[in-house]
């Protein structure tokens, strides 16, 4: 049996019999690169229009912190440290931007594969940026057991970066995300490979209840706070909700990213403009 998820997803075009009866327990995807060539569509990754060298360095700093935290959590068997949930207290604080930037930065790591999951059902900005808003995605997969993982995982314009769009919106989105199939999907995306990073772009804590369900699956939570925009009371409330609903949160599992800061607050003191 071929356990290559993407090869299986590609097979319906060559072997239609496999599609109507997908296995309930999803097998892990071992070789994303090998399977990507069989997919038809491509997600276009747009990067923010930042001071590129500086931003690149800032995301490198962020990535180093995340890598260090993953290594420190390697002994923990309860949660996968490679599953990173990006959330915030309120909408519009830059979750998708941080998700994309972090994915690009992880992509530079040797033999590292990144899967971006758009779980922001209120505003699937990641899917829109990748031009995958109308494609079958996460909710379709969770709602329709006939779909395979290869049906919702798309290669992007960047090698090593794959995307799972949000899919068509459903009223039952929070329940679907809180289900076991979501956990199985995350396990399959990791495929037992610790070098795979799954970054989930979720909605804000105070506006999307499914974020709390996702937090329970995430090994690390990046809480995005926008300078001059996020209120302190919202940050306290959002972190409090995560702490109550998604298990105890300590500084080994939750970290904060200060977004939309100015140059003087950047840890990168020098950048050469390209």
């Amino acid at each position: 049996m071929n356990h290559n998820l993407f090869l299986m997803a590609a097979q319906p075009e060559t072997n239609p019999e496999a599609a109507p009866h997908p296995p309930r327990e999803l097998p892990p995807a071992h070789d994303l690169d090998a399977a990507a060539g069989d997919l038809k569509r491509v997600g276009a990754v747009q990067t923010p229009h930042f001071d590129e060298s500086r931003t690149r360095e800032e995301f490198r700093v962020l990535k180093r912190h995340m890598v260090a935290r993953m290594q420190s959590m390697a002994d923990s068997q309860m949660l996968r440290p490679g599953t990173i949930l990006i959330t915030s207290a309120s909408p519009g604080e830059g979750k998708t931007t941080v998700t994309l930037g972090l994915a690009m930065s992880f992509m530079f790591e040797r033999d590292c594969r990144v899967v971006l999951v758009d779980a922001d059902m209120r505003s699937p900005e990641l899917s829109r940026r990748m031009h995958l808003a109308d494609e079958p995605g996460l909710l379709d997969f969770l709602d329709d057991e006939r779909l395979q993982i290869s049906d919702i995982v798309y290669p992007t314009s960047v090698k090593g970066v794959y995307a799972v769009p949000a899919g068509r919106p459903r009223v039952t989105a929070p329940e679907l995300i809180a289900g076991q199939r979501m956990r199985a999907l995350l396990d399959s995306l990791h495929g037992g490979d610790e070098s795979r990073i799954v970054i989930i772009d979720s909605g804000s804590v105070l506006s999307c209840s499914e974020t709390i369900s996702l937090a329970a699956h995430a090994g690390q939570i990046l809480f995005v706070v926008a300078k001059g925009q996020t209120k302190r009371i919202d940050v306290d409330e959002g972190l409090g909700i995560l702490h109550r609903e998604a298990g105890p949160l300590d500084e080994s599992r939750v970290a904060i990213v200060f977004n939309k800061s100015d140059r003087s607050q950047s840890p990168v003191r020098y950048s050469k403009r390209p």
Binding site: P48, H49, F50, D51, E52, R54, T55, E58, F59, V61, L62, H65, M66, R69, G94, T97, V98, G101, F223, R232, V235, D236, L239, E251, V254, A255, I256, V257, F258, N259, K260, S261, D262, R263, Q265, S266, P267, V268, R273, P274
Partner: peptide
């Protein structure tokens, strides 16, 4: 305020180019 580590900042200043 949060007693949690701030592990990074992202600057939003457009490049000249």
């Amino acid at each position: 305020a949060c007693q949690l580590p701030v592990i990074g900042t992202v600057t939003w200043e457009p490049a000249w180019s």
